[in-house]
Simulated assay, not measured.
Amino acid sequence: MTDATATDLSKDAAATAAVALVEPGMRLGLGTGSTAVIFVRRLAQRAAAEGLALRCAATSKATAQLAASLGLRVEELDDIGWLDLTIDGADEVDPDLNLIKGGGAAHLREKIVAMASDRMVVIADQGKVVDRLGQFHLPVEVIPFGWQTTRKLITRALDALDLGQRPVLLRQRDNKPLLTDEGNLILDLALEAIPDPQALADRLSRIAGVVEHGLFLNICHVAIIGRPDGSVVELQREDFE
């Protein structure tokens, strides 16, 4: 079994386990990313087979288009009002269920949807579980106006937290700056490690021009980690407030 095959099987195991959490009549938040895509497909299969009446809010245009094409009812978050459950992927998950998200450039909408939910469940493969956040580049969504100045302010914030002279990279696609669904830019922070995620989150949130960062702290309730053999491990924060 190749590493890629093992990862795909792990993602499918996590997504399948998450589908079992869905109850008839639920208001669901649908995540973005490769594992979330599997979840949406599995969810649509179950909804069609059982005739589930679900109301879904998507965290990206891509997820909305996929879900609608598979027959799921997709609505605007404000029209639904509040969600029972959001199921989404993550780029990193630490032992306290803090996350880095935004590899798919959707972390702004993902955080809004997650925080408008009674529960957030993360689905991932074992490779996303880390002892400490930061190996994955931390995405920061910024408005286009004055973005280079915003990048300088981010660099100063990193220096103030003794995180060193780390690259702050403008994310590109097809040799052009990538634009989010909101028309913003993404700056990726190559930090290697984040000793104090809360301190960094607070600093980034105070910078003018920063729309949202990819640190999801004290938001995730449960993480379902898939294994290649089809089994899963469920991680839960007992002290969640």
Rank of each mutant, 00 (worst) to 15 (best):
A6T: 09
K101D: 08
V222L: 12
D196N: 13
V211F: 04
E182W: 00
A15V: 10
S10R: 14
V40E: 02
S117P: 00
A48I: 06
A17G: 08
I224S: 01
T16M: 11
M26I: 04
I219E: 04
L200A: 09
E182K: 04
Q198R: 15
A116F: 08
A90R: 02
G104Y: 05
I143R: 02
P144M: 01
L179K: 15
A62C: 03
A36R: 01
T150R: 10
V168W: 12
I87M: 09
A44V: 01
S69A: 14
H221Q: 14
K61T: 15
E50A: 09
D239Q: 06
H221D: 15
S231W: 05
V168I: 14
S117W: 05
R173M: 14
L138I: 07
C56S: 06
G226K: 08
T5W: 08
S69I: 10
G209E: 03
V22F: 08
Q198N: 12
R109I: 02
C220P: 00
A190S: 13
A4F: 11
P197D: 09
R171N: 10
G226D: 09
E141P: 04
L189G: 06
E50Q: 15
A114H: 01
L21V: 05
A18D: 11
V19W: 06
T180D: 11
G214N: 07
Q198E: 13
A201G: 02
D159R: 14
R119E: 13
L43C: 06
L153T: 12
E212K: 03
F39D: 05
G230T: 13
T149I: 14
P167W: 05
G103D: 07
E141D: 08
D202W: 00
A13Y: 08
A4M: 13
I225Y: 08
C220G: 06
G31E: 05
P195Q: 08
D125N: 11
H221A: 14
A223Q: 09
D12T: 15
M26N: 10
P24G: 00
A90E: 03
A90S: 10
R206H: 10
G25F: 02
S34E: 03
D118P: 00
G134A: 01
L30E: 04
E23P: 00
R227G: 08
S69L: 09
T59Q: 12
Q148W: 05
A53L: 10
D84P: 03
I123K: 06
M115E: 13
N98L: 03
S69T: 08
I207R: 04
Q45E: 14
L97C: 01
G81M: 06
N184S: 07
L153E: 14
A18K: 03
K61C: 07
D91F: 10
D239R: 06
D96K: 10
I225D: 13
D78L: 10
F216L: 12
R132F: 05
R171Y: 11
G226P: 14
Q45P: 00
A4V: 13
G89I: 02
L85I: 00
E238I: 11
T150S: 05
Q65E: 15
R227N: 15
P197M: 12
L72I: 12
H137V: 13
V93Q: 00
V211S: 10
P167T: 05
